[in-house]
């Protein structure tokens, strides 16, 4: 018996309207990702990577097609149910880190736990563990602007892992990092994915990063070219 895919997209289309013109960001995109699989999404800027990740993560809705996450068709969900998917099943790592600038590293990591109203003692323990995991055990009290780019992305990864998601979506997580740091971050993602057994969908255009993935999906002008 084949395991149920963690991510399954069928003929997904997304079109943006800008004034009188319409831009199709995704054309009939279909693919699957198995549980525990590390999938890299490669493509140039504007090829539709971020749109695809947003749709997979429930941040955006397709105009057509189906998006099934862990057996749940996102199209059938209303907004609160989508919020719940983002809160419980999916985690994001953004290119710009997406940290709340007023909060310390530990507080940023604890945000998903606060959403779940986890008890403060449990939350603090989990945050501490995650910061140790990403190598920032000593930097929990630092504000984002007191951290380097690589450290901020590690915090973002720790935050993504805080809610024990089944799917990790990372949109160019190394885009603002130098190669060495980027490689370290990518290795970290690779490591935690393996350790936590989660599925990862990571967009990048760096071949070195792609080498760390189990599979690479290439997207051009909104179409998967070698899925």
């Amino acid at each position: 018996m084949t395991a149920r895919p963690m991510v399954e997209l069928r003929s997904v289309r997304r079109t943006y309207s800008t004034g009188h013109a319409a831009v199709t960001a995704l054309h009939e995109v279909s693919f699957t990702a198995a549980p525990g699989e590390f999938v890299a999404l490669a493509g140039r800027s504007g090829s539709g990577k971020t749109t695809l990740l947003n749709i997979v993560g429930g941040l955006d809705r397709p105009d057509a097609g189906e998006v099934v996450i862990d057996g749940t068709d996102l199209a059938t969900l209303d907004e609160p149910e989508l919020d719940a998917v983002r809160r419980d099943a999916v985690a994001f790592v953004f290119q710009g880190f997406g940290l709340v600038p007023e909060l310390s590293a530990a507080e940023n990591v604890g945000l998903p736990l606060r959403l779940r109203k986890v008890a403060p003692s449990v939350r603090d323990q989990r945050v501490s563990t995650l910061l140790e995991l990403v190598g920032l055990g000593e930097h929990g009290a630092h504000l984002p602007d007191e951290l380097s780019g690589g450290q901020m992305q590690r915090v973002a990864i720790a935050r993504a892992l805080a809610g024990s998601p089944r799917l990790l979506i990372a949109d160019e997580p190394t885009g603002q990092l130098d190669t060495e740091t980027g490689l370290a971050v990518m290795a970290l993602i690779r490591g935690v994915v393996e350790a936590e057994g989660m599925t990862a969908l990571v967009s990048t255009h760096d071949p070195v990063m792609m080498a760390l993935a189990d599979r690479v999906l290439r997207i051009e002008d909104g179409r998967l070219v070698d899925a």
Partner: peptide
């Protein structure tokens, strides 16, 4: 932006 980020990690519109 902050609220958009919080929404991205699962906060509802109401929250």
């Amino acid at each position: 932006t902050t609220l958009a980020r919080v929404r991205a990690i699962g906060a509802s519109r109401r929250e």
